[in-house]
Amino acid sequence: MGRRGLLAQLIGYGRPARTLELAGLPLLAVGLVLLALAGSLSSLTLLLVATVIAGIGQGLAFLGGLTAVNEAAPVGRRADVLSTFYVIIYLGVGLPIIGVGVLATVAGLLAAVQYFACAVAVLCLAVLLILARTRHPASAAAPPALSGSTAD
């Protein structure tokens, strides 16, 4: 993952999953768009800024997903559910790399990375919109006036 993602996870530890996801997804999307732009501009500075932003966003989004899965998993099946989560994460990391490699043979490496980064940024924003429109499970259980808290 990298130091930035690890640092983000250490800072985000203990926070609600939804908060982590709502903070991480837009950062990841911005970092990926900046990555694509850095390639077009041949800017090392922009590349470094993009990797810091994307790394923090990825770390927060990953921790949010892991926290959500951990909270939702039945106690007796938590190890099974978490190991499945990790398998899906590894597939989600490995298969796109192969796809970018195949696309690079046709479109070139820079174009393949740019297409992939922009596609994943759009997916991050789509998931962010879905999360923002979905009621938080805790707030769905009680009316806002009785829950004593506001949205994450």
Rank of each mutant, 00 (worst) to 15 (best):
S83D: 04
G65I: 00
G55P: 10
G101E: 05
A73I: 00
G57Y: 09
L48K: 00
S43W: 06
L66Y: 11
A54V: 05
V93R: 02
I97S: 13
S43R: 02
V49D: 00
I89M: 06
L103R: 04
A73L: 07
R77M: 12
V100Q: 07
T45V: 06
L82D: 11
Q58R: 02
A61L: 09
F85V: 09
L48Y: 04
A61V: 06
A72R: 11
P74S: 05
A79D: 09
G76S: 05
Q58G: 13
L63H: 06
V69K: 14
A79V: 00
Q58K: 02
L48Q: 05
V49G: 03
V52Y: 07
Y90H: 09
A79Q: 06
T51Q: 15
A73Q: 07
S42I: 02
P74M: 11
L63Y: 02
E71N: 15
G65A: 07
A54H: 07
A73H: 11
V69M: 15
I97W: 10
G92W: 02
S42G: 10
R78W: 09
R78N: 05
E71R: 14
N70E: 11
T84D: 14
G99R: 04
L82W: 01
G55I: 08
V100R: 04
G55V: 10
G76L: 10
L103S: 12
T67S: 12
P74N: 05
L63G: 15
N70F: 09
L82V: 03
T67G: 14
T45H: 01
G57S: 10
A73C: 05
A79F: 13
N70H: 12
T67V: 12
S43E: 08
G64L: 11
G99Y: 05
T67M: 08
A61W: 01
G99I: 01
A79S: 07
T51F: 13
V93M: 11
G55C: 08
I97V: 14
L46A: 03
F85C: 14
I89N: 15
L48S: 01
G76N: 06
G57P: 15
I98K: 05
A73Y: 04
L63K: 06
P96R: 10
A73K: 05
G101C: 00
S83P: 04
I53F: 12
G55A: 10
